[in-house]
Amino acid sequence: MADFNPGRDEVEDVAAMKREGDLSRFLRQQIRDGQARRDKPTAAPKPAPPPGYRPGAWPSGTSPPGPLPDRGADWDRALDRYRNGEGSDRDPCHCGACDTPDNNQTEEN
């Protein structure tokens, strides 16, 4: 911030404006003048759209995603396999029918 060092004439002018009640109006005018001189920010230019661009449309060669496939039967099969114990660490060959010591469902302590 610049220091304000008024000379004798300026001090007398400020004192006279203060006595007459014009000081606040003068200061507001100084603020408005300073704001008017301030450079207005300019917006950056908008880049050009790519070739073949259509606003609001999917890009060429693409389409919106379709509906998801029904996976209900896959979930049912996976749940049945889980309930039968297929693919677990108690079923080494993942068939669900092995009669091995690891396949019996009792826990050892």
Rank of each mutant, 00 (worst) to 15 (best):
A2F: 06
F4Y: 14
N5Y: 04
P6K: 00
P6I: 05
P6N: 00
D9S: 05
E12K: 11
A15R: 15
A16W: 02
D22S: 09
L23Q: 01
S24F: 11
R25T: 15
F26M: 12
F26N: 08
Q29V: 02
I31K: 09
D33G: 12
D33C: 00
G34F: 08
Q35I: 09
R37H: 02
R38E: 15
D39P: 11
P41E: 10
A43L: 13
A43S: 12
A43F: 04
A44S: 10
K46M: 10
K46L: 10
P49Y: 06
P50N: 08
P51G: 11
R54I: 15
P55D: 14
G56V: 14
A57G: 01
P59W: 13
S60I: 07
L68Y: 05
D70S: 04
G72Q: 12
G72P: 01
G72T: 15
A73S: 08
W75G: 02
W75N: 05
A78C: 03
A78M: 10
A78H: 03
A78Y: 07
Y82C: 03
Y82L: 14
G85I: 03
G85Y: 01
G85E: 07
G87D: 01
S88T: 15
R90D: 12
D91F: 05
D91M: 13
P92G: 04
C95M: 03
A97D: 07
A97C: 09
A97K: 11
A97S: 12
C98E: 10
D99Y: 05
T100S: 15
P101K: 04
P101A: 06
D102C: 03
N103C: 15
T106F: 13
E107L: 12
N109A: 02
N109K: 05
